[in-house]
Structure formats: structure tokens, C-alpha cells
Write a protein that binds this DNA or RNA. Structure first.
Lengths: 229, 229
DNA sequence: GGCAAGTAAATTGTATCCAATTGACGAAAT
DNA sequence: ATTTCGTCAATTGGATACAATTTACTTGCC
């Protein structure tokens, strides 16, 4: 996605983001600059830049002279994120019902197929794929700004779900993804929006889950391999 | 707004942002880290962080090993920003028609009064105030995420207007701001949205304007004074 | 034993230093 | 005259070194 600028900062940024989204780094976990940098074999400078960007995206928070932590969105903040997400994704639907690019349906269906491939398993991969479906939808609008914002709120929702949802239960999600595609293909704007609202609403209304901390080194060592060029 | 964390990075960030929004730093103008840092009396490290954040907000772009420039939004990108802005501000209207905080109308009317005070002058101050009205609206929703996104798109719109608008012509804008307040107070959601759409639409449809470059030092020297603690 | 103050360790905030990349200017060859 | 290659200046990409701040522990006093 953003691999065009292949700087170290971007690499670390992507790795950390993935680690957070896939729940390897759990909410509230500390992210000391030198620990992370040591694991990835880069200097604090790089990690620092990545953390600044992650903070801007709401995935980590930094307390002055204390350091960076994986964000722990409050229920109120979660509500805010979902509200914005629904607003943005409805706009995505509206645009796509009017103009869908040529290869749009092929890409969407291909994505749903890859989602079905990991169906049943509630692992990190299915979490990531579920989110990427919505990002793909947004990208198909051709509006880069819209796509970026959708991407951000989807990522934050993934983090929120990792805190408050019992399980991501992507089983029904995949079906609803197919339904959304069909509604858009039929040009039925209202129905597509209704499905999306139900999809997001269903995802939003869940019970809580207690986080369990873990060692940072052991987690990052897995992600670090990919940086060895 | 974000003065709670009073780090140097934030200070430089705010200063540069204001300079860009007030058209002191014009689109396409270079922002060398050394030059900026020297003017503000801080190191490149600080400037660097500020520039990274400004890039995330779409106000500057950085080319690898080339440096940072004030962003020059294309017409296509401008269209994207306006599309997202309309979507977000409509949501703001919808929320405020349902629940407006107690002191909301007082704050809004006070703001309009201060806008009228500088009416006629098309200076930087009126540009900034016109944008801050919309940010204030968004903040009154109580949704921080929504407010942040609205703030970003409003800032980008200010930059866009500085490129493509003949004049900001805040004369009619102030009147429309009052109309929006009244529509919300009346609970007339649709009318408020219509006015807002017209307000943004009118702002969006303008001709082009050729930028005129200037010396960076002379511009920043003015903003730099505020950093002397 | 509990509480408070002081001190030390850890971590971030900031500055400076070196290396790598890019763009421009100029000279030489076709 | 135009194009191409090479060198150089300018600027960023990244790392290291130092300062400031916070936390935690220890020690002494009540």
C-alpha cells in the first residue's frame, strides 16, 4: 500500500501497526523506543518517527516523558470512532453505487474468496482481512482522502474490537460482505447502506474482554524477521 | 487546542500550520529543515517531527531526499477533500440538530460576532476565523474523532482556496454561518444541511490563481517571535 | 511498621554528527 | 549546438551523544 517510500521509518511503522492490529501487541502495552529499536535493529530515531505517526492515527498514545503505549480506547472514544466510520462508509457506498470502476467487482469478489479461505479460524489473518475488505471498498471510490480516513477508522475499530469483543467472529462478516457487494451491484443504495449499518452495528454491540499482557521482545522477534533485507 | 502538551515540536507544528493557512507560506514553497529550525531557534529534529505531522495532515509533501514543500493540491485532490468535508459536516449538522450542548449557541454567536468584526478585510485573520467556525461546530458534537477529521479537511480546504480562489470573500460566508446556526436552532436538519452544502459548494466552485513565491526567512521571522519564551 | 524524603536508574526530549542521495552546473565529445 | 557524463554542493536519512524529567527504590525518621 504505502511501500513506495521504502524508508526504514515506514517499515517499522507498518510492522508495529500490523502487530497492534493482529493483537500481538495488546492495548496498554508499553513500547519503549530503544527496546523496539533494538529488536528491529534500527535506532531510536526511526522508532520515534513511527510512533509519532501511529499516535496521529490513534493507535498509540504517548505520555510526556513516559513513553508510548498501545492505545486503550475508552468506550466513549469507541463510540466516536464507530460514528465516524458509519458516516464515512455510507459515503463510500453512495459513491460506489453511482460509479464502480471496471475491475471493482472482480477485486471485491477475489477478496471475499480469500476471506472464506480462512473462515472459521479467528486468527490474526482473518481479523486483518475483514478490515481490508472495507479499505478496498473505500479505495475503489478513487477518492484517496476518503480511503485514507476509512483506513484509519477501520484500523482503530480493529483495535477496539480486540478490547471489547469476545471474538471477531468473522463468519457472519464474510456473508455480509457478499451481501454488500450484491446490493451495490444491484444499485440498491439504501439496501447496501442498511446492510453496512447492520454490519457495523452488529460489530459494535459486544461485551467486554480483559486484556492479558505479554513480553514485548518475544512478540516483536517474530515481526522483526521481515526487516532483515 | 493542543497546547496541553507544550513540547517544542507542537509549537513549531502550530506555527508552521498557521503560516501555511494564512498564506504566508504559499503552495509549492520549500521548507528546508535547516532554514526553518534556524529561524525558530530549534534543531532539525524538532522541525522534522513537525513536518512529518504536517505531511500526515496533507498540508505539506516530502520528496525523498529532496525535502518538504507546502502542498499543492491538484484539482482532483481538492475535489476529494471537498467531498469528504461535505460528508463529515453533514454528519456534524445531524448530530447538533439532535443534541446541542448548553453553551453551544452562545459560543457560536460569539464566534460569528468576532467574524463580523473583521468583515470586509480579506486578510489572514478572516481566513482563519472562517475555518474555525466549522471546527467549533464539529467540537460541539462532543465527538473528538469527528472534530479532528473536520479540522483537518477544513485546514486543507483553506490551503486549496489559497490556490484556486480569487478571494476568500468571507462577506457572504459570515451571513451563511448565521443562517446555519438558526437552522440548527430551529431543528430544521434538512435546511441546515442545504445551507451548508450551498456554503461549501459555493466555496468550491471558483477559478484559479497564480501563486507568487517569496523569501522564507522574512516570512518566518514574524512567526518566530512567538516562540521566544 | 508505615510514611516521607532523597537518590539512583530508566526513559524520553533534544541536539549534533556522519553517510547517502539527489539536483545542478559545467566540461567534453559527437 | 546538443547531449552526455562527471563532479560538487545542498539537503535529507539515520545514528549517536547529551540533557531533562519521571519513576522507583532505598534509607531514615516518626
Amino acid at each position: 500500500m504505502s511501500d513506495s517510500k521504502t524508508t526504514l521509518t515506514n517499515a517499522v511503522h507498518d510492522l508495529l501497526r500490523r502487530a497492534i492490529i493482529e493483537q500481538a501487541l495488546k492495548p496498554g502495552m508499553r513500547l519503549p523506543e530503544d527496546t523496539v529499536g533494538e529488536q528491529f535493529g534500527v535506532s531510536r530515531t526511526i522508532v520515534r518517527h513511527a510512533l509519532v505517526r501511529l499516535e496521529n492515527q490513534g493507535l498509540v498514545i504517548t505520555r510526556r516523558n513516559r513513553g508510548a503505549f498501545v492505545a486503550e480506547p475508552s468506550k466513549e472514544e469507541a463510540q466516536h470512532v464507530f460514528e465516524v466510520r458509519r458516516c464515512l462508509e455510507n459515503e463510500v457506498i453512495r459513491i460506489l453505487c453511482r460509479r464502480m470502476p471496471g475491475s471493482g467487482y472482480d477485486q471485491l469478489e477475489a477478496h471475499v474468496r480469500s476471506e472464506e479461505k480462512v473462515k472459521g479460524k479467528d486468527g490474526p489473518v482473518s481479523i486483518r482481512l475483514a478490515g481490508e475488505f472495507h479499505v478496498l471498498l473505500a479505495e475503489l471510490t478513487g477518492n484517496d482522502v476518503l480511503a485514507r480516513y476509512v483506513s484509519e477508522v477501520v484500523l482503530r475499530c480493529s483495535l477496539i474490537m480486540s478490547m471489547y469483543a469476545r471474538n471477531h467472529s468473522s463468519d457472519c462478516a464474510v456473508d455480509e460482505h457478499s451481501q454488500i457487494i450484491e446490493a451495490i451491484r444491484a444499485g440498491d443504495e439504501q439496501r447496501a447502506i442498511d446492510i453496512m449499518d447492520h454490519h457495523l452495528g452488529a460489530v459494535a454491540g459486544r461485551a467486554e474482554l480483559s486484556p492479558k499482557p505479554d513480553s514485548i521482545q518475544s512478540i516483536l522477534s517474530h515481526y522483526g524477521k521481515e526487516l532483515a533485507q
